[in-house]
Amino acid sequence: MSDALLVGATGLVGSMVAAQYPAEKLAILARRSPVVGVAGPGWRVAPVDQWCAVVAQERPQVLISCLGTTIRAAGSQAAFRAVDHDLVLAVAGAARRAGARRMIAVSSVGASSASRNFYLRTKGEVEDALRALDFDCLDLLRPGLLTGDRQGPLRIGERLAAIAAPFTDAALHGGLRRYRSIPAQTVAAAIVALSSERGPGVYIHENDDIRALAD
């Protein structure tokens, strides 16, 4: 039985969680290892269609999901939904059936199943479905624009937004602070902090709360 199982470890936030989390307490499930042909300690490398079986075998106490892509990177809305909705819920359901009592998931600022925006509506639908799985404790992180050195293909829109972030952030006050940019490193640190014992319930963490947790 793993203390915690991380999915999405090859992404921006997930890779930083993997680097910060105590290695002896974390298993990582991915389609590929960080070094081609070499899976480091704790890594479980398997095709996506085998992930639920791996989760059932691992029986983690805590599931951490940093899974996520963009519609542009995925190629279509359907392909995006297959990852950000279907895969997240499949792994979460497998973990819950295997006895996981807690889940920590990275969502997005503005997530709502009632949103007219496809991306935000999908994120909101995932949050609603995760609540229905009835984890003892569910932590949903809703960061703003993530900044940091991302591996893989360049995302032009995100790079331009990151360059403009210091100026746009300065204009966001009060309730709009949650839309400010936030370093992926900070989000990862908050996830590691959240993995310690917490009381039951569903918790929503937006930018200010994420920063406080990281500190």
Rank of each mutant, 00 (worst) to 15 (best):
L154N: 04
N117I: 11
A19T: 08
S196I: 00
D86Q: 14
V109S: 12
E197T: 14
Q151N: 07
G175L: 12
V62H: 10
G201F: 08
A212D: 08
F167V: 15
C137E: 11
R31S: 11
V55C: 05
V109K: 06
L145Q: 11
V91C: 10
V36H: 06
A90M: 06
E197G: 04
R121Q: 14
A132M: 12
V45R: 06
H173P: 00
G110L: 11
E24F: 05
G199N: 09
V106H: 05
E125N: 13
G68A: 05
L146G: 06
A23C: 02
Q77K: 15
V187N: 02
R211E: 13
G201A: 12
A111F: 04
A164P: 05
R81I: 09
A114Y: 02
S195R: 13
A74E: 13
S15M: 03
V36T: 12
Q50A: 12
Q185N: 02
P22S: 11
P22K: 13
S108N: 12
Y203K: 08
S108C: 12
Y179A: 02
Y179I: 01
R131V: 13
Y179E: 00
R211D: 02
G68N: 05
M1T: 11
S195P: 03
I182V: 12
Q20G: 03
D136H: 13
I64C: 01
E206W: 02
F118M: 11
W51R: 09
P60D: 09
L160P: 03
V38D: 10
R142V: 02
L120I: 03
V7W: 08
L6R: 06
S76C: 05
V88C: 00
D209F: 01
Q61K: 15
D134R: 15
R96L: 00
V35E: 14
G42Y: 06
R116Q: 14
I71M: 13
W51I: 04
